[in-house]
Design a protein around this nucleic acid. Structure first.
Length: 230
DNA sequence: TACATATGATCAT
DNA sequence: TGATCCTATGTAA
């Protein structure tokens, strides 16, 4: 279906990837929990039974295995998927998107910790960032969206944009301010010091030493500091 | 070698 | 809320 076509563009919205092939065919990929791309610069191994997609040109061969979604769509179908997603903090037009986020968040009655995983509210956050963002903003995960001040809502969006941009740049999730672990620069952080709360249940908060707690929310575990996020 | 576990999202109920 | 998709990795055995 895609053989021989030229790749015109690749776009991302949240964790959804859209490969636009000429003319007017869109490959929609979502890696989910298990999906991985593997690239072979030379001498590609033959695809295995788990390989769902192979893309190759003269220089590189890329395999995709384990994705939640790998489907060929027409542009209208791709648009429909795009339209049902909430705003992406990494997209341009951020001020407008922030207002849209505030609107969509305010309509929900679920806890803010659950809303951050709802792709119709905000796209692309994920389980690590939802916990880290709420820590950075000093917001308890079980707060009702309606109880959040405009400033708190703004800070969630702006912090998401900043942190996601940093993650994109470094290809790592590093939310910790080096000052909080007693070093000067990001590069001096030990890998165990990259996050404030994610998967740190029982360990002392990096800011106040209170033991980190965790709770189940939207079917997944979220960690938080009961003192910093009172 | 076996097993638990993970940065996700959808759908049925 | 639980089942489902079903790869790679790290740790235990």
């Amino acid at each position: 279906m895609l053989d021989g076509r030229t790749l015109r563009d690749v776009r991302a919205h949240g964790k959804h990837l859209f490969y636009e092939w000429e003319p007017d065919v869109v490959l929609h990929v979502h890696l989910g929990l298990f999906g991985t791309f593997r690239a072979f610069r030379s001498d590609p191994r033959p695809p295995t039974s788990g390989t769902r997609l192979a893309m190759a040109n003269a220089d590189v061969t890329i395999y995709l295995a384990g994705p939640t979604v790998c489907e060929v769509l027409d542009p209208a179908e791709a648009d429909a998927i795009h339209d049902r997603l909430g705003p992406d903090p990494l997209a341009r037009r951020s001020a407008r998107s922030r207002a849209e986020f505030a609107r969509r968040l305010a309509r929900r009655t679920i806890p803010v910790g659950a809303a951050l995983l709802d792709q119709k509210v905000i796209a692309g956050i994920g389980n690590v960032y939802r916990a880290e963002l709420l820590f950075l903003c000093g917001i308890a995960p079980d707060r009702a969206p309606r109880s959040l001040s405009p400033h708190e809502v703004t800070s969630i969006w702006d912090t998401a944009a900043t942190q996601l941009r940093m993650g994109e740049k470094t290809d790592r999730i590093i939310t910790v301010d080096p000052v909080d672990v007693g070093v000067r620069r990001r590069g001096q952080l030990h890998p165990d010091e990259h996050v404030y709360v994610y998967q740190r249940g029982g360990e002392p908060c990096r800011r106040c030493s209170t033991p980190i707690e965790h709770v189940e929310m939207a079917g997944r575990t979220i960690w938080f500091c009961p003192s910093c996020q009172a």
